[in-house]
Simulated assay, not measured.
Amino acid sequence: MGKGHGKAKAAKKVAKPKAKCCVSKDRCSRCPIRMLKEGTLPLGYTVKKRKLVKVKKLKKKQPLAA
């Protein structure tokens, strides 16, 4: 039997974005700004001031007492 028969194929590997945009005219394949625009940026990340940053988790609001 060959390798991997009967098993699901591995998920497509996504390139990890750079920590900071290099501001090149033609965006590289790992540019965080380009990845944000295309929607390929990993979950939990965003871009602020050309830098890759983690998104903070939102806290649940407690209901107001009447």
Rank of each mutant, 00 (worst) to 15 (best):
K61E: 05
L41S: 12
G44C: 08
K49I: 02
I33W: 08
Q62R: 15
R27H: 10
K56R: 13
K12G: 06
K25G: 08
K51Y: 00
K61G: 04
Q62L: 11
C31Q: 10
S24L: 10
K57Q: 13
T46D: 05
C22T: 14
K12F: 05
C22Y: 08
G2W: 01
A11M: 05
G4Y: 14
V23F: 02
L52I: 10
K57C: 03
K9M: 04
A8H: 05
L52P: 03
K54T: 12
I33D: 03
P42C: 02
K9R: 14
V14E: 08
R34G: 13
I33M: 09
E38V: 01
K51Q: 11
K20N: 00
G4W: 12
P42I: 01
R27P: 05
I33T: 13
V14I: 13
A10K: 15
G6A: 02
P63E: 13
K13T: 11
K3C: 07
P32V: 10
K60Y: 01
K25R: 04
A15M: 07
P42L: 01
K49D: 15
H5L: 14
K25T: 12
V23A: 10
V55A: 02
A66L: 09
Q62W: 00
M1I: 02
G6H: 03
A8F: 06
S24A: 10
K56L: 08
R34V: 01
C22G: 09
A8L: 09
K57M: 06
C28K: 10
D26G: 08
K16D: 08
I33G: 02
E38I: 02
C22S: 11
L64Y: 06
K57Y: 01
D26K: 15
Y45W: 14
M1H: 06
K9C: 05
A65L: 11
G6C: 11
K61S: 09
K56W: 02
L41M: 12
K12Q: 14
P17C: 09
T40M: 00
L64T: 15
R34K: 15
A15T: 12
L36P: 04
K20E: 07
K7Q: 06
K48M: 07
K7F: 09
P17W: 08
P42T: 03
P63M: 10
S29E: 12
K20S: 05
G6V: 05
I33H: 06
G6L: 05
K60F: 04
S24Y: 03
G6Q: 07
L64W: 04
K60I: 06
P32I: 12
G4R: 15
L58R: 14
P32N: 07
V53Y: 09
K61D: 06
K48S: 13
A15V: 13
L64I: 14
D26N: 14
V14K: 11
K13W: 00
L52F: 03
L64P: 07
K18N: 06
K25W: 01
R50E: 14
T46N: 03
K20W: 01
P63T: 09
G4F: 15
Q62T: 15
G4C: 09
K61H: 09
K12T: 13
K37L: 01
A66T: 12
T46V: 06
K12E: 13
P63D: 10
A10F: 00
G44N: 06
A11V: 09
P17F: 06
K51M: 03
L43V: 11
A66W: 05
K54W: 04
K60P: 00
C28A: 05
L36C: 02
K13D: 03
V47Y: 07
